[in-house]
Design a protein around this nucleic acid. Structure first.
Lengths: 353, 353
DNA sequence: CTGAAAGCGCTTACAG
DNA sequence: CTGAAAGCGCTTACAG
């Protein structure tokens, strides 16, 4: 059923013919290269406009044999489904764009070890790259890398968390504050008159700060409420060992017997869920991230809602943005916030990260 | 920062060199064209495997000058935001693939006028096309078109609603039954002990059948509940005039004073919302589709939840699937269910259709 | 400031 | 059954 394309009357050849110049000259004008008289340039530009010329990117890439290298710096995905998904998204993007002569170097750091990030940032030269995709889990080194990109005029895209104020091509990730509000609104829809517990679990101070942004949004929602404002209890756990977490939650629940709902500000909600299941505790439980353990407890009915942040899509969009900006010349929005996905037992089977 | 690609040692040329044949023969083997001795064929295939040859699609398309035409049949998008979004998704896909020599013909029918669909299907020849994207709002004619596609060996993709049993390349759209379950679960999370009203609004019998699938899922959720099973009231409105709808809802609410939540099985939830707002009725209200009016009432707090069905993505994926199947040779999944998106006042600003 | 020619990796008649 | 040659739309040295 395939047809042959009619020979193009809108390519460089046609422009050259009309302008009475060679196609080399047309090419110079198209790419704003110097060495063309203003007169010829004007004439050619007019014809380009007239026939609505759009260069054939396939042919262009094929002929130029240009290659672009991108650098990706994200957390290790071993044993971390969230970052595994992000990594997968990057691969999916790469599969689509590699035809265009793109190569990608990935570097991974350990999310639980700030030093691994420091070392990585310090030991990696960004000079050979045409773009950098960075998950800046740690602030100071993120800033350092960002300024190096700026000095070298290399486009930089942040995924998953932003470094506000730094000069980046784009930020692709969640609006943490608003996702906290969302969690609050769900809990508010379900509770009667009990208290609500907020649980932050994190060891590294940098990640703890991210959790605080969610907590802020969560609190703000209730503050903005005209009527019923439940009491909010807060529990900070600066340790990720399960026994410690369980113990602290246990104590807290003893102390506040009428807690009706619990909001865990990250994917560690699985630990609380496990504890609830063991102890046969039945409270509204809301947390983050569609990872295996969490989905298990969602299906069990222990977790009521998960908030998804689309890690796969973040990775996909991150690399794709770099490609589109560099190769296609597309305009990339400065902020690309992920949707705040609400996942329940009923829709989880259709969810795409 | 762009680099030159090193001359490829993995293309047809290299294969030809190693096999001691011309590249024309290599090309014949790659495309399974006849006229090659078994011996040569085997040798070439081995080399292809060995060097992991992957044809350069850019070069292939450029040289072959092949064109593919796709036919799109969907409802008119004038005054219908849902189908406008689908149409937009198709355009977005087209923008990405047109480089490859793709052309798309769109035909629109009137969703409120079955005859327009009948006429369209009967008057359109599918023969010139390499693929058809169809939103089969009306059953019988959908089946007719599907069999014509089958006869002519033209791949067919359904969007938004399926015709089960018909031989299609893919279905891309919602799982209606499960989305009804989702609505039920949200309502169940919020209600205390009142009754629940189900409202189906539709004139055409074919679309009414779609609504019933959602109602089935909705009822099934409550049936599966071990404990609390609220009374379910049902209201069928086979008319789309607002006065009629308001009157019938009004009567129903009179008759059942303790209705606590209302589930409207399509985007007409806006009409109920308008009525609720006018009458200062405060009940849980859940409906479908992220369109302007519904979003307005969501933000007002009149509608509690909207269920989104990603019309834009349906359109995008529909055309993209056709392209990938026909041009790239990708395997397309038979079913691509859209996620069941839960939209609230808090996350609607980040929602992408 | 401008053009002729070769080439990107693949496909397509055409000739044998 | 097989190959030499031209060409897709563009880019790139090179020469002038």
């Amino acid at each position: 059923m395939d047809k042959k394309k009619s020979s193009s009357l809108s390519g460089v050849k046609e422009i050259a013919r009309r302008a009475n110049v060679s196609i080399a000259t047309v090419d110079r004008v198209i790419h704003n290269r110097k060495g063309v008289s203003q007169e010829t340039k004007d004439k050619i530009n007019e014809i380009i406009k007239e026939i609505g010329f759009q260069p054939n990117i396939l042919a262009s890439r094929l002929a130029s044999k240009k290659t672009n290298r991108f650098l990706v710096i994200i957390p290790q995905s071993a044993e971390n489904e969230y970052w595994e998904a992000c990594n997968k998204g990057i691969d999916r993007s790469y599969a689509e764009i590699k035809q265009y002569g793109i190569s990608v170097d990935k570097r991974f750091y350990d999310l639980d070890n700030k030093q691994s990030f420091v070392k990585l940032v310090d030991s990696t030269s960004i000079v050979p790259y045409d773009g950098v995709l960075l998950a800046p889990s740690f602030f100071d080194e993120g800033v350092r890398l960002a300024s190096r990109c700026k000095e070298n005029n290399i486009p930089l895209v942040f995924v998953n968390s932003d470094i506000p104020g730094e000069d980046s091509l784009s930020y692709i990730g969640p609006d943490l504050y608003k996702s906290g509000r969302q969690a609050a609104s769900l809990i508010n829809f379900g509770i009667q008159k009990g208290k609500v517990l907020i649980v932050n679990i994190s060891k590294e101070i940098d990640t703890y700060h991210h959790l605080l942004r969610k907590e802020d949004g969560f609190r703000a929602y209730f503050n903005d409420l005209p009527s019923k404002q439940p009491a909010l209890i807060k529990l900070d756990i600066r340790d990720t060992r399960e026994e410690i977490i369980e113990k602290m939650v246990d104590e807290c629940l003893q102390q506040h017997p009428n807690i009706e709902a619990v909001f865990v500000t990250n994917s560690r909600v699985r630990v609380i869920a496990r504890y609830f299941e063991k102890q046969h505790i039945d409270k509204i439980l809301v947390g983050y991230d569609v990872i295996k353990d969490n989905v298990h407890y969602l299906k069990q009915g222990v977790i009521d809602f998960l908030i998804g942040q689309k890690p796969e899509e973040q990775g996909y969009r991150g690399l794709t943005s770099l490609f589109q900006h560099t190769v296609i010349g597309t305009n990339i929005p400065k902020y690309c916030f992920m949707p705040i996905d609400i996942i329940t037992k009923e829709n989880v089977e259709f969810y795409r990260n």
